[in-house]
Simulated scan of single mutants.
Amino acid sequence: MGKRQTSYPFWLGGVGATMAACCTHPLDLAKVRMQTIHPASGPVHPSTLSILRMTVRESGFRSLYTGLSASVLRQMTYSLVRLGAYEKMKASLSKDGPAPGSHLLLAAMLAGALGGLAGNPADILLVRMTSDFVRPPAERYNYSNAVSGMVTLVREEGAHGMFRGLGTNMTRAVLMNGSQVGSYDLFKTMMLRNPIPVIDYQLQDGLLLHAISSVLAGTVATTVCAPADVLRSRLMSAHGVSHPLQVLTTALREEGPRFLFKGWTPAFIRLGPNTVLMFVFFEQLKKGWRTLFPATYLTDSG
């Protein structure tokens, strides 16, 4: 008698990612502002703390959640598709036994590309809403929420405006899903099969395992995705038509190669907790789904 794989709703991952994003949104805001702020003269660069402190001082505590509606829309498009598609692909690949890691990595990257396509319009809104603060008043978009922002975006830039920066965004999404979701499954599997060195402790499939795997996955994902993330933010926040190569060459000339990792610290500070919360929420939602709907967790004869 073997157990049939649990069938989870496609949207479950999107809900878990949305819950995590609501907790870490201020850090996402700081990351985007650091990536899009005009380079200051001199060696001093704004830090995560200084960006957050300046935001609160000039606009109040509530301003830390500027663009939250766009963040929710992004998670319920981008993350819903990338996590949902990956879970479906993984279930299909694993129906006859554990799938090879290379196959799961390819599935994660493909699911990431689909998520990047689905979430591109919300990504544009999120970048613009969170970066408005560091713009001159005359250049601000002033979207009041994600819905009005979407209407304004389509009205002023046409339907093609929703796919500004799509190439870099999909590249980032492929890298993100492969490095975050793929490495999470890899670390989780490795620690389930092997005891932790030195202390010789065998982790069980529970909260501690999920947290450790998530922290490691968040570190890998932040480093792998940093260059594409910076280019995506620059392209989506720009006025007028911009080409990725033009943005890249201009930034390299004016700021040097270190600009590709600009905002790495807030990106990690944000992505680390976000990855932990997302996977913990997702695992708990799956556990709750199995409890509420045990009929989806049956045994096969054979």
Rank of each mutant, 00 (worst) to 15 (best):
L175E: 10
Q202Y: 10
L231W: 03
G178S: 12
V220M: 13
T223Q: 09
Y184Q: 13
L166Q: 02
M190P: 00
G240N: 06
L209C: 06
A226P: 00
S183K: 04
V241G: 01
L175N: 05
G167L: 09
H210S: 10
L175R: 02
G161D: 00
V181G: 01
E156Y: 01
N169F: 12
G161A: 07
G165V: 03
R155L: 11
R193G: 14
D200L: 12
G161W: 07
N177M: 13
E157L: 07
D185N: 15
L209S: 00
D185E: 11
V151P: 00
L209V: 01
A226G: 05
G161Y: 01
T189E: 15
R155Y: 02
A226N: 12
V151R: 12
V154K: 05
Y184W: 15
L166C: 00
R164C: 08
L208C: 08
R234I: 12
G206A: 12
S233P: 00
F187L: 08
Y201Q: 07
L207H: 10
V174D: 08
T223A: 15
N194P: 02
K188L: 14
E157K: 14
A228F: 09
P195D: 07
V154R: 04
D229E: 15
R172C: 05
P197R: 12
L208P: 00
L203R: 09
D229M: 15
S214L: 08
I196F: 08
Y184E: 06
A226I: 01
H243N: 09
L207M: 14
D205V: 08
R193H: 14
G165W: 03
L208D: 01
L235N: 03
G165L: 06
T171P: 01
G218A: 05
G158P: 01
Q180D: 02
V220K: 07
A238S: 15
P227K: 09
G158R: 05
S242T: 14
V230G: 01
T222D: 03
A228L: 03
Q204E: 13
P195Q: 05
M176D: 15
S214W: 03
L208I: 13
R234H: 10
N169T: 14
G182Q: 10
V198E: 03
P197D: 10
V220T: 12
V230Y: 08
S214E: 04
G182E: 11
I212K: 04
A211W: 08
A226D: 08
Q180Y: 11
M162L: 13
G158C: 00
D229C: 10
V198P: 02
V224P: 01
H160I: 06
M191C: 06
G218C: 06
M176W: 14
S242E: 11
S183R: 08
M176R: 12
A226L: 05
A221D: 02
D200I: 07
L235H: 05
R155S: 14
Y201R: 13
M170S: 01
Y201C: 05
S214N: 03
P244Q: 07
S214Q: 04
F163V: 11
